[in-house]
Amino acid sequence: MADDTGIRIDIRKRWNWREFFFQWEWLLVLIFLGVHVVNSFLSPYYLNLDTFISTPSTFLDKSFIVFPMMFVIVLGMIDISVGSIVALSAVIMAVSFNAGLPMPAAMLLCLAVATTAGMINGFLITKFKELSSVIVTLSTMIIYRGIAYIILGDQASGRFPEWYSFLGWGRLFGLPFVVVCFILCAVIFGLILHKTRFGRSVFGMGNNGLTCRYSGINTDRITFLVFMITGFMAGLTALFLTSRMGSTRPNVAQGYELEVIAMVVLGGVSTTGGVGRIAGPILAIFIIGFLGYGMGLANIQAPAVLVVIGLLLILSVLAMRVRFKIRKKSAAV
């Protein structure tokens, strides 16, 4: 009963109104605008260009981890060791610099340490598939921070060269250097995720790892790479964070994993894997960032920000579930 009527099969994507407006990102845009409206009521000086240019540099350093974490969560996994990797790589950088290593080399060492830490995570997860990524990264989270404590005790280490503060405070083309780097990373990661073979495989594995395996995709290598990149980006965060703070201690970046995961999940990335777009987490970074800034303006203490982030995380997971159900229902009609 072959259909040889010669109907050409459509290979061009059609514009779909419902799909276009039924996007999580619109909701985020609304929230984002809402945050600004509230903030501008809180402070008459809020609405000017400089706010938008310089404020982000106060919250962007951890956002570097948001991108690879998005990959991790799209894979259907999780990495809660990122905060510890930041601490470990920052501590090693500071200590080796103070032991006489030239700063550029120390910075490379920082990235190398972080990448190695990510590789260890990736190795354990791919070689011991019986273990969930939760438990693997939970143990390495303790170990990495533990090593940071072994190296530095409870002291701080710093006294970095003058030029190093450029990372956290400097400006390039009139924009804070962090912002420039952030934009760069956003573009690179967005392209990798949505335009490359690697990104396609990541989405595929999050949807159905078995099918990908049977389709000849090197699933182990991809998982390994994703965790390795996560480590590397945590190292980058360590560079910026240390530069901004001027020194480091073994207890820096505690709780980063939560904030980063919250941003990714708020950005519409499903915790069960396979679903998400880069724009969502980017919007979420700015929502949470400006929200914190606004709460600062209103003299609300930092702890309240914790509460809000936690609430956002849980509410967005719940909202995604509801949205998923509605979508299923409408698809069935």
Binding site: I80, G310, I314
Partner: peptide, 10 residues
């Protein structure tokens, strides 16, 4: 993990 991370912060 998500539920308890969220509650931990709150």
């Amino acid at each position: 993990i998500i539920a308890t991370l969220g509650l931990m912060n709150i």
